[in-house]
Design a protein around this nucleic acid. Structure first.
Lengths: 209, 209, 209, 209
DNA sequence: TATGAATGAGAGTTCATTCAT
DNA sequence: GATGAATGAACTCTCATTCAT
């Protein structure tokens, strides 16, 4: 059951290919209903294609899920790496990445929910692949953290562990901010600043270093 | 939705009642395989009871899951509140709660994995109840944080948000530490100290206050 | 699986025995919910006894049902035979038996519903026993009809067939009269007279005989 | 409750579609074993299709049953209405409809048994729908009776009540004629004539009118 | 006698996947 | 390429019945 990278961008035309339509539909449904709550029939209907078409572009439901997840991680990673390459300072990167996470849930994309679901409640083999994907993402973040440590922009710590800690921290708060009650609204308002503050305090170098 | 019989402690003998055996088996399986990956038949086999017995003690699979979750949260909460009432200082509480989280996974209970799964990949109604349970837990932690803030033991911040942040932070790292590879072993070693450090830096009052 | 006749009347005391309490409860439930819709647990609760007690008095659910059915048939038969022995004329017997059927449903006993259910939707072996019970009842009616034919009070016809025809006729109308809508009320009002008229016309001797 | 696909006649070939095969198998089994005695697995086997196919054509077991019932009622109704439209006289219609009922059981279709089961021993909601179907059928017969009354071909009486009486009458005798013993054979022989006689005497106008 | 915890076969239903067209 | 009818293993849950106490 190897990973298959289907066309992220249609090669021939401007309009999105069927694979993209399917991925977009699946992303919405997985985020709202989870892996098991989302049937292939439902994805096909939401995407406006037949079940046969689904299986033409993706070998299995698990691959649909992984494809969606990969896309989400890639987007987030591209943003962070882009900023980093442009020379944005460490605390500023932290602040803006946190902001982006909150923005994605406020915009109703609900992709934040998708990420925090990753790896749980899934068939065993799928769970492993999801963890691998998450590891890939976390490793990239750990790389950025390592570079920042060498430049003394953030304090010295275990990079991968810190990366996971940051991910968990942000995801837990954004997940709560998606609940839809009054508290959720409040967290959406104060969340970006508060979470960035927490993250930065956890990362900043000691005063006299 | 009938009331669940919960004989947490058998009255006559030392050996645990069937309800406890079931809960323990379910906790193991849910942690390893998630809600959907764990069938009632499997739980019955793991607990060494019949399916009928399962439904004698719990009205549905969802109630089994919630019962397990409730038990885990209650245990953790009791530990933290116990320490707090005994007058342990804030940084020490943080350090020891983090230690306990890591200890529970090292002991093979895998309950840490269970908690981080909470609320995802589940039937919609169940997801809401899981979130409610998590909120209850987070609220208790937020209460402790509020008290610590009033005593100037930790810095002033949004208590509930901070509670969720701490939960997410710890869970993300412990989840990674359960993967079973070399990195996981490393995280189990350095995790307690590093995570406590991150948490304390995020919480500690500013120097001149 | 032989038929067991349990105490129809308690031998020692005036108050009804447990067997009677169970039969009464079962009669209510079977009439309202049918054989499959009525569980042993429910019967036990309605009768205010334990499941163990149920199985102490009746060897199986099927026997509970048969016992209830037998009781109903016996009652109806006793009424008809009583009238007949008292020398009531044939058309009058017809009229009053029909009236009694309607009266039993108007009084809310719902036993009428029970009889019209008999023999259908039941496990195969039970269905045969129910048919046997019904045959017993029909045979008794056929006997009465035979006697009336010999006295030239009703026309000559196949007695057993006529008995079944009368049963079916009355049961179909009473079943409709139990539906609970406006038409049902109307049928409860006009039913006794109209059904008796139909029955009598089907039975009465030809004018010049 | 989704719409049932009912391809009553296959478009391309002569052989019946799967839905018809399923309906036919279900009709046989329901007639012999009742609603609860007939499992979906059994229907699938009898029809020579998979369980999945069953659920592809019918959303639930209840809908299979209702579909079968509808088919039976429709057939009978079409016969009676056809004769009526062709100007067959009232007593002749009665005689031939009764004959048809008996013919259907002699032919081994056993559909007669199915109709007399209608509405009993079924889940509550299903029972209501069955009664509704039966009411529909009875109402059509009542219409025919009304027309015959206006033409003075039969005596004046409550049309709907009379319709139910006729149904019950015929069904009770045919049900007994299906028991398989010697009496059943006898009833199959004399039944058509005797039942038609009973029905006609119940319906015929008074001599001097 | 009387209890109700425990059993487990079997129920209706879902859904990822296949494949002839 | 595209379709959707067909498959069947696996699911959660029910309930008549047993038996140690």
């Amino acid at each position: 059951m190897r990973v298959v990278r289907t066309n992220v961008r249609s090669e021939k035309s401007m309009e999105p290919g069927l694979a993209d339509r399917i991925r977009a539909a699946a992303a919405r449904l997985f985020a709202r209903r989870g892996f098991h709550g989302t049937g292939m029939r439902l994805i096909a209907e939401e995407a406006g294609v037949s079940i046969g078409a689904l299986y033409h572009y993706f070998p299995s439901k698990e691959e649909v899920f992984l494809s969606v997840l990969r896309q989400e991680y890639d987007q987030r990673l591209a943003e962070a790496q882009g900023m980093w390459r442009e020379g944005v300072s460490a605390p500023e990167v932290v602040r803006r990445v946190v902001e982006l996470h909150f923005a994605s849930i406020t915009a109703g994309h609900e992709s934040g929910r998708l990420l925090s679901q990753a790896g749980v409640g899934s068939p065993l083999e799928l769970a492993l692949q999801i963890l691998a994907l998450r590891e890939e993402y976390a490793t990239c973040i750990a790389d950025l953290l390592s570079q920042a440590m060498q430049r003394r922009e953030i304090r010295t710590a275990h990079p991968l562990l810190t990366a996971y800690a940051l991910l968990g921290l942000v995801e837990a708060v954004t997940a709560r901010a998606l609940a839809g009650d009054g508290t959720a609204d409040e967290l959406q308002r104060v969340g970006p600043a508060e979470v960035a503050e927490i993250a930065w305090r956890a990362l900043r170098p000691d005063k006299e270093e």
